[in-house]
Write a protein that binds this DNA or RNA. Structure first.
Lengths: 345, 345
DNA sequence: AGCGCTTTCTCAACCGGTAAAGTCCCAATC
DNA sequence: GATTGGGACTTTACCGGTTGAGAAAGCGCT
């Protein structure tokens, strides 16, 4: 059962086998000039025969770059499972990391403060070469932490939240405005929004944009509530919005993610209201979920995978000192499906 | 803007500040005997003042254990976003890792072969101290790879799939049997199962168990199809099952995850069939999603978070050489909700 | 006082790489 | 023929810790 205890093969073994010095092996494996083709081949052959790959640990200790990118997520564990957003975002990040043989160091944290501390130890411990920061709040401690450390990061969030950090973000204000305009154009005058976590910066941006859009369009009714993004909370919020008398209740509801919209749909069904007959629902983030319900959910859709990939690419830009710098990603676009229609009267 | 470029503080600085040698600092930080209380305090004080934390990179190079656990996931990126399973599993893993100040190294791969190679380089590169292996297939190359490397791993999968590796698993056969028995007890005689990816080992186990249960219970009709776990595939499968003439089609369908069950629910609605009146649906994995639909979905429910935590704890057991060893986790239990009932006639 | 024993620390040799400086050899130039 | 200039490697000094082999100091005991 217990096979040979794996005698670790090191650069020295490879050097010996190829009949060269450690330095030569290092040069070969980093594709640096100063070696003849013949030697290079001999070294690679020796490495292949021995099944050797350079130890990233040692490499990073010796001052070279670190091939690991950090990502800390600060949300209650339970919610993470359901939110398709993160996994999709992560898979986008991964798609870029994989191209460059990098790995992702993931950690769930409970607060931005804890995350700031984590970044500190990750960076000082040379565990990561850079980090992706998500879910910004007002006065986020991570901005100062990253700057103080000189840690290369890309901040996923609007520049108004991310201080001077290189950022990628979605234009939430425009998207919210478009969502409200669309519903208003259908004829809705009483519109509600079931928002995400109040503490999150982009929730604030969306809330302000919704207010502004409601003012400009002179809506007869505009409600906003914040939740914790969970389906349960979305259901609760929907229930409370729809229990008002028909003339007072919203005829359209915008949700800040798709899980809450799905929950809202089922609440409408449970209350005997038809969608989109009695109430229109508009989701956000548009994962596959929106196409699996009946009726299908209209959504502000959004290439989350691409968003993650973009964030990762931008981070590499920061690390190498070139590349794009801060920029917005494409604004979510309205994808009408079966859950939105003009109000009945 | 550019603050001080963060002059890295090392063990030497701490040693100097505390007036001791590097070795002493090392002893203190590893809680090893041989230092007086006074010196110990002095060292910790110095470290605190300097904001120093030991470099895990250097530490692991020097032969100490590595505080990182690997996890590679081999599924198409797109599906990952929607499958609540993984994020919930990961959050369970994290909950245990966090207690021990460990991090998770995550990577999405395209094949078990690629994963085997990744484990090789992670381990040889001393990037991980152990790994969690999921989604076993028949003759999985990772079994041999882990054994050859002497890499501490915990395999998430039935022992029949994981070779001699320390494993944790759910008893899928029993769970499937229970699901079928339950539906049969309600009076269903024509039952279908929409399974997951055929290549996956546990899909095979469930398929065999379903066949066996159908045989034992002498069901009049038993269908099984395999899918890729996506909602789309679940919808397609459901559609094709339900288009048969009423007397020939299944009156109950079991799904291998909850996303496909949600999709199935919407297909039934779209076809004008009532759930559970015309057809009963039973989901698997029971994320929050099952409680957000209308009707709510009955499910074989399953503490996925706890499963992840258990896997992580077992891995630590393997690493330290003590702990539980291979064991099953609690079998999923049937949670009846609104989507299952006796068949109409 | 001399001897052995601890306890408390220091020293120096690694761990497995990287990178700057140094060595050698040979062709080209003055 | 001596000098210069590279190309092709090797040497050596780290990177930031750990670790085992001492060394110095304090203490009890004969």
């Amino acid at each position: 059962m217990t096979s040979t205890p794996s005698p670790r093969v090191t650069i020295k073994d490879v050097a010996a086998r190829a009949g060269v010095s450690k330095g030569a092996v290092s040069l070969a494996f980093n594709h640096k000039p100063g070696l003849s083709e013949a030697t290079r081949d001999r070294i690679f052959a020796a490495a292949r025969e021995l099944g050797w790959a350079p130890s990233l640990t040692a490499r990073s200790l010796a001052g070279a770059r670190v091939d690991v990118v950090g990502l800390a997520i600060c949300r209650p564990a339970q919610m993470l499972g359901l939110e398709p957003f993160y996994m999709e975002f992560i898979s986008g990040v991964e798609s870029v990391l994989t191209e460059r043989s990098c790995s992702l160091l993931l950690r769930l944290v409970r607060s931005p403060e804890e995350e700031a501390g984590l970044l500190d130890s990750w960076w000082k411990g040379r565990q990561i070469g850079g980090s992706i920061l998500v879910d910004f709040r007002a006065d986020d401690p991570r901005v100062a932490a990253a700057e103080r450390l000189g840690l290369p990061v890309v901040a996923v969030g609007h520049p108004s939240l991310t201080g001077g950090l290189t950022s990628v973000w979605t234009d939430d204000a425009t998207a919210v405005t478009e969502a409200v305009r669309y519903l208003a154009a259908l004829g809705h005058r009483r519109i509600a929004r079931v928002g995400g976590a109040a503490a999150l910066g982009h929730t604030g941006i969306r809330t302000a944009a919704f207010d502004e859009a409601a003012r400009v369009l002179e809506l007869a009714g505009a409600w906003q509530v914040t939740t914790d993004y969970s389906g349960e909370a979305g259901a609760r919020a929907t229930r409370s919005l729809l229990t008002a008398a028909p003339v007072d209740r919203p005829t359209a509801i915008v949700y800040d993610n798709d899980v809450m919209a799905v929950a809202g749909l089922s609440v409408a069904a449970e209350m005997g209201l038809s969608v989109p007959g009695d109430v229109s629902l508009l989701a956000w983030d548009d994962s596959q979920l929106c196409r699996l319900t009946h009726p299908t959910l209209s959504a502000m859709s959004h290439d989350v995978h691409g968003f993650g990939a973009d964030a990762a690419r931008t981070l590499f830009g920061v690390i190498t000192g070139e590349g794009p710098g801060s920029h917005p990603v494409p604004t979510p676009v309205l994808t009408p499906r079966g859950s939105t229609a003009p109000p009945k009267m």
